[in-house]
Write a protein that binds this DNA or RNA. Structure first.
Lengths: 182, 182
DNA sequence: ATCCCCATGTAAGCGGTTACATGATTGG
DNA sequence: CCAATCATGTAACCGCTTACATGGGGAT
C-alpha cells in the first residue's frame, strides 16, 4: 500500500490536484513508483474518506485541489519511520531465466547474458543523462531524488558488470576444471 | 506471466507433482520467483488446458505427476530467447521513502539510511551462508542458481555501499558548500 | 491408533494495468 | 472555431496473497 504514501508525500510539499500529482508522478517518481491516472483518482478518494487529505479548493473543469491533513502527516511519518520497506528485488524474471539457461544452446545463453549487459548499460547511460537534467533544483524532491538516482546508477552498473562476469562464467561451466585444449 | 514459465522450466528437468514443484520453489526459486501452493495448482491446471503439460501418472492421495510436452518446451524456449525481461526494480518503496526524507528530522533520516545499510549487509551475509550450502550440486539448476546467487551478492553489496554513501551525503545536504564551522 | 506429512483444491480480497467514457477551457 | 490540454471518473481483467477446506497414507 505505498501508493497512498507516495500521494501523501507529494502533498506534504503543498496542495495539488489529481492531475497535478499525475504529472509529478510521471516526471519524478516514474522510476521508483509509477502510477496510472486511474489508480490516482481512486486513491485520492479513499484518502479523503480516511481523513488523510481534504479538498481545499475547486477550480475550473471540476478541478479539485487536495491538501494533506494533520492525520495524513502523521500517517506519512509513521510509514517513513516505522514500516519496514519491502525487499527490493523479490521477483525477477531476468534471474528466473538464468536458472533455466541450461535448456538453451550455449550460444543462445551467451546472447541472453550479453543482452542483459547491454540493456543495463543503456539504462545506465539514460540515468546519466537524467542526472545532468536534474542536477539543478534545490527543492526537497530534487535533492533526495538525486540520492535515489545515484542508487539507480550504481545498480545498473552492478547489473552490467554481473552480466559480463556471467558471460565469462558460461565458458567455465561448459569447459570444466581440468580441461586443457588440444 | 512468469509463473507459468517457472513451472515449465522446472518440468523441463523431469516430471513432478504440484507438491514436488512447491518444494523446489521453496528451496531454489524462493529468492527469484516465490510462489504459493494456491497459485501453483491453479497454474498447473491452466498449463494442462493449454497443452503445455500433461498428467503422466497418478499416485496415492490423488497425486498427479505432470510432464512437459513439446508445445511446452517450445513455449519455454520462446520465453527464454524472445521475451524481453521486465526491468528488475521497477517499484521500490525503499527508494520512494528516500524522496520524502525531507519531511523527517535529520536524525530520523539518518537512522533510516543506517538501517538500510544494515539490512543490506544482513542479506549479504545470509546469501554468503547460502552459497556455502549450495556450493556442491552439478545439476543445471544448481549451477545456474549459483550464477543468480552471485547477482544477489553483488546487489546487496551495492545496496549497502549506497546506503552508507547516502548517510554521508545527508550532512553535505544540510551543511551546504561554503559553510564553515565556528 | 495416532500424528505428521503428503496432496489437492476453492474463495475472497487487493493492488495494478488497460481501456472506456465524458466533458470543460484555453490558446492560436 | 478547432485542437490540445486540463480534468475526473468507471469497469474489466489479471496475478498474487491469505485463508479455508478436505482427506489419504505411512511411520512409530
Amino acid at each position: 500500500m505505498s501508493l497512498r504514501h507516495a500521494v501523501l508525500g507529494l502533498l506534504s510539499e503543498g496542495p495539488a490536484s489529481g492531475y497535478d500529482l499525475l504529472k509529478i508522478f510521471e516526471i519524478s517518481l516514474a522510476n521508483v513508483w509509477p502510477a496510472t491516472q486511474s489508480q490516482l483518482y481512486g486513491e485520492l478518494g479513499r484518502l479523503a474518506d480516511a481523513g488523510f487529505v481534504t479538498v481545499v479548493a475547486e477550480g475550473p473543469r471540476g478541478r479539485k485541489e487536495y491538501a494533506i491533513t494533520d492525520a495524513g502527516r502523521a500517517e506519512l511519518h509513521r510509514w517513513l519511520v516505522e514500516v519496514e520497506p519491502t525487499p527490493v528485488a523479490r521477483r525477477s524474471d531476468m534471474l528466473l531465466r538464468v536458472f533455466f539457461l541450461g535448456v538453451l544452446e550455449p550460444e543462445e545463453a551467451r546472447t541472453y547474458l550479453r543482452r542483459r549487459a547491454e540493456a543495463a548499460d543503456e539504462n545506465h547511460r539514460n540515468l546519466s543523462e537524467l542526472r545532468k537534467v536534474v542536477s539543478e533544483g534545490e527543492d526537497s524532491l530534487s535533492v533526495y531524488g538525486r540520492m535515489a538516482l545515484e542508487w539507480g546508477l550504481r545498480f545498473t552498473a552492478t547489473q552490467r558488470d554481473w552480466a559480463e562476469w556471467a558471460e565469462q562464467e558460461l565458458d567455465r561451466i561448459r569447459k570444466p576444471q581440468g580441461a586443457s585444449e588440444s
